[in-house]
């Protein structure tokens, strides 16, 4: 008789060791520090499109100053990719997808060109997509497509600067069932405020009275004229309003297994990137009602005095995501005293 419980407890131990390693699947190093060619984000504007609509794709790329080679781009898309481990490769050919749709493959192309931006058109009628998303089709295809809030398709970008190449993906939704479209989040100013504590020595949970608010902060100018002081800790704020966490509905089931539109609200998270210094967190999140907006829109940053920073300039990148594929970003540069 096999030891059933031992097997499960071993799994718990593995998860615990994984977490103790501090990686939680992310690996060591400082991902928020920009020191090499990076693709930080891909935006689809808009992030979900209905039949006969199109979306414009662009990427936020960081290239170090010493890398002056021109980048080459190659965009493509695919309705179904593998789940990871094999390079997120496309699982169907154009002909196969056309067959699933019941259309002619001649008008279907996964190639989106080699310009810095690309355009994807939603040319598929609702009935075809509804058919793809049916359980019977899942059986025929051998896998479940992601049809929550529209058919999820994957856009792929490969960039190359002759020394290095990076492949990045981004998902967007092809709407077919009346689900309202998503919008990319927007935000106002970037602000900053000198902190009373030193990064690394701050209390992890400051009391409400001590926590500064965005209203007290100054605007960090977008023209690069702002200046900050080395070895001082600053609160950084991204002025984002709560309504950017959009309310939406999706098709779901009630307690009686009846199909209904279920109300929900987007989660937001901000990825913070820097070219020098250290951040309190690489990511901040807003997950209503479990967390507050204040947990999202602020971070702490410091440039240690002993850190080598040629050029005495620091750049910040703020990338805002919502939980339905929407993304926006902004960037600031400051001089250091």
């Amino acid at each position: 008789m096999r030891n059933q419980l031992n097997h499960l407890l071993n799994k718990a131990l593995v998860i615990l060791l994984f977490m103790a390693n501090g990686t939680c699947g992310e690996g060591y190093g400082t991902p928020q520090k920009l020191d090499r060619l990076r693709v930080m984000a891909i935006q689809a504007a808009p992030p979900s499109i209905a039949n006969n609509e199109s979306t414009t794709l662009q990427a936020l790329i960081y290239q170090p100053d010493d890398r002056e080679q021109e980048l080459t781009y190659q965009w493509s898309w695919c309705p179904f990719v593998d789940s990871g481990g094999e390079g997120l490769t496309c699982l169907v050919s154009e002909d196969e997808f056309a067959a699933l749709l019941g259309t002619d493959a001649a008008n279907l192309s996964f190639d989106l060109g080699s310009n810095p931006t690309a355009t994807l058109e939603h040319i598929f009628d609702n009935a075809s997509l509804m058919n793809i998303c049916s359980p019977e089709n899942a059986d025929a295809a051998g896998f479940f497509p992601d049809c929550f809030g529209g058919l999820s398709v994957t856009v792929r970008l490969e960039i190359n600067d002759e020394k290095e190449s990076i492949t990045a993906i981004k998902r967007l939704r092809l709407l077919y069932d009346g689900t309202p479209a998503n919008q990319n989040p927007t935000f106002d100013e970037v602000k900053f405020l000198l902190s009373n504590t030193k990064l690394g020595e701050e209390k992890s949970r400051p009391s409400q009275e001590e926590e500064p608010t965005i209203d007290e902060a100054e605007v960090l100018p977008a023209d690069g004229s702002g200046r900050l002081t080395t070895d001082k800790t600053y609160h950084l704020f991204l002025d984002i309003k709560e309504e950017q966490s959009e309310e939406f509905t999706y098709w779901g089931f009630d307690d009686n297994a009846q199909l209904i539109m279920v109300p929900s609200q987007e989660e937001l998270y901000i990825s913070w990137y820097i070219t020098a210094g250290e951040l309190m967190g690489a990511r901040t999140e807003y997950n209503p009602p479990l967390s507050e907006l204040e947990d999202l829109h602020q971070n702490l940053w410091r440039l240690p005095a002993d850190e080598d920073n040629p050029g005495n300039q620091v750049s910040f990148y703020f990338i805002v995501h919502d939980s339905r594929g929407g993304v926006s970003w902004t960037h600031r540069s400051v001089g250091m005293d």
Partner: peptide, 16 residues
């Protein structure tokens, strides 16, 4: 043997 950046979730997916 390689990676793909998943920009939706902000992490690198390994290719084995």
């Amino acid at each position: 043997i390689g990676t793909v950046v998943d920009t939706d979730w902000d992490y690198y997916v390994p290719t084995y």
